[in-house]
């Protein structure tokens, strides 16, 4: 497969970037997208050029490290997969592929396709946890009854890997799907109810301070999310937030 790649190159956070064209040949349909970039980088290094910087870690779709906005969609044209699980068979010989970093004011570009998603970490630190007594009398979570529906919904919310595809896809760069998943996974369980009020207020406050946009319910985040996190979580967070606010 022969491809033309239009890749965003940016030296560092302080310089302006631009799309640079690359030609690449011999790409197999069974390669992953990141393997294709590895091939490109091998060629660039052999030519003495700077390789393209991009985030990756597990390459199994569970760490949330890889990002990339490919042909106008976060994680590319396939559904329910991260970029590392995207295969080149999704493209045709002769295709031109646009590769850009996830764009949001809250995700500043560090270099090329690598963005700083530390804003997600700060939102998590603001309330994405439960306080558990670990003094030796810790109660086994399995001894606390949880109804099946709530347990399933909580688990589904907890599958969010925090990759940022929701922010990248949203026309407003809203982080509501990510934050709502993190709020929901605790709000649905008895262990999370104790700090529920502070959690949602603090996490939303931090989300707003990071400069993410306002959700306008386009639903793009849900479609592009590699883990299929549902918009129901955003509705739940809205209820949690309004309830916490009116409670005072």
């Amino acid at each position: 497969m022969k491809l033309t790649l239009k890749i965003w190159r940016q030296k560092n956070a302080d310089t302006k970037g631009k799309l640079v064209d690359y030609q690449i040949d011999g790409i197999d349909g069974d390669m992953s997208f990141l393997e294709m970039l590895d091939v490109l980088n091998g060629q660039l290094i052999n030519k003495g050029e700077e390789p393209v910087a991009f985030d990756h870690d597990c390459r199994e779709g569970i760490c949330g490290s890889c990002s990339l906005f490919i042909n106008g969609e976060a994680h590319g044209p396939d559904r329910l997969v991260t970029t590392c699980q995207l295969h080149m068979r999704m493209f045709k010989d002769g295709d031109t592929i646009h590769i850009e970093p996830f764009r949001a004011t809250a995700f500043p570009v560090i270099k090329d396709l690598v963005v700083d998603r530390g804003s997600f970490d700060r939102v998590q630190h603001a309330g994405g946890f439960i306080s558990v007594n670990t003094s030796g009398k810790t109660v086994d979570a399995n001894t606390i009854p949880v109804n099946k529906h709530d347990a399933d919904m909580s688990f589904m919310a907890a599958t969010c890997i925090g990759c940022g595809a929701c922010v990248a896809s949203c026309k407003n760069s809203s982080a509501m799907l990510f934050v709502s998943a993190k709020v929901s996974q605790f709000a649905l369980l008895p262990q999370g109810k104790i700090e529920a009020t502070e959690r949602v207020l603090n996490m939303v406050k931090q989300m707003d301070e990071e400069g993410f946009g306002n959700c306008t319910n386009t639903g793009a985040c849900e479609v592009e999310c590699p883990k299929g996190i549902s918009l129901e979580n955003i509705a739940r967070m809205n209820r949690e937030y309004l309830s916490a606010t009116f409670k005072g």
Binding site: K6, W8, L19, F69, N71, G72, E73, P77, H98, E100, R103, A104, T105, A106, S169, K171, N172, S173, S174, G211, F212, G213, T218, G219, A220, V223, E224
Partner: peptide, 14 residues
């Protein structure tokens, strides 16, 4: 919240 627009954004897909 997004000061630099995407060069290619396929909004119709989602």
């Amino acid at each position: 919240a997004r000061k630099i627009a995407y060069a290619k954004n396929n909004g119709n897909a989602n």
